[in-house]
Design a protein around this nucleic acid. Structure first.
Ligand SMILES: [Zn+2]
Ligand SMILES: [Zn+2]
Ligand SMILES: [Zn+2]
Ligand SMILES: [Zn+2]
Lengths: 147, 147
DNA sequence: ATAAACCTTTGAGTTAAGTCACAGGTCAAG
DNA sequence: CTTGACCTGTGACTTAACTCAAAGGTTTAT
């Protein structure tokens, strides 16, 4: 049996995180000591590691709660159920990737068009691009590489 | 001069968003009517569009505040200052991309290893991977493509 | 003149995943 | 027997970017 600080240290998380997971229905200690201290079993530790691994591949706590509810009753759940959760998350991640990739492309274009020199920003192509309607950025900078 | 609702509608945002931007030092209307209504000028509208475009390439409001402070005093700022903001954001975006890509890789590997069938999840490779220490996922699923 | 649509301010709620502060109880060592 | 490390519960705070509610004043149209 681990006390809260022992388990937290072993898994490199904060004691409060463990209390937080308990409050949010992810992991409750199997026992309490006479004086009310939380006592976690090996099995509890395994569940915690499950949670941390799931976090490590991008699952939110709400999603992990779903995974856990399947975990504890594998017999009455199908592979399909598990895979569905993974595939939904994958879609989610890919949508975020798509948005970030758009940001990256735009930012790169902005950065590349700007000379980055020490003279006045009065004609900086980045500011011009943000001021104007066009989403296209002119790659000719009238003081490009010059200043 | 636009009243708040007119400008909001023209730019497809919520009235409250405009009030929020004002409270947060991003955009204050140039005028008020006798009865206290906000009155936005064409110039104000352009600043709002600047803000929305900057949001569109991924900048946070705090970052946009910095961009705006350069915008209003271009003469005393250099291209370098602007480019620095863009490059910092680019780095930021690329770090987030890296993390999401790691998630994507892991999730794909998990998904690919699971048969997704309708039989019991008792031996689902996804759950096994999350239960076990190994970050490697065995691609042999003892009921892979079978069930 | 009255209803509808619009505006004002203030302040609270939302989401996610914790983190921290407080006041006090418990346990082991010396 | 006292110190220090640990534990308890409750509840407030954090970040970001809004969004909504309430109570009331203004404008416009009919
Ligand atoms: Zn330049
Ligand atoms: Zn520039
Ligand atoms: Zn299967
Ligand atoms: Zn499976």
């Amino acid at each position: 049996m681990y006390r809260i600080g022992e388990l937290a240290k072993a898994c490199k998380i904060n004691n409060d995180t463990l209390r937080f997971y308990e409050k949010n229905g992810l992991l409750s200690p199997s026992n309490r000591s006479d004086s009310g201290y939380r006592l976690y079993s090996e099995k509890d530790k395994e569940i915690l590691q499950f949670i941390l691994r799931a976090k490590g591949v991008g699952f939110s706590l709400a999603e992990i709660r779903e995974l856990l509810s399947i975990e504890v009753d594998k017999a009455n759940n199908a592979c399909a159920d598990v895979k569905e959760l993974v595939d939904a998350k994958l879609l989610d991640v890919e949508q975020k990737l798509a948005e970030l990739t758009r940001f990256q492309t735009s930012l790169k274009r902005l950065s590349d068009a700007c000379c980055g020199g020490e003279k006045s920003a009065e004609h900086c192509t980045i500011l011009e691009a943000l001021e104007s309607d066009t989403s296209q950025i002119r790659h000719e900078h009238h003081h490009y590489k010059a200043h």
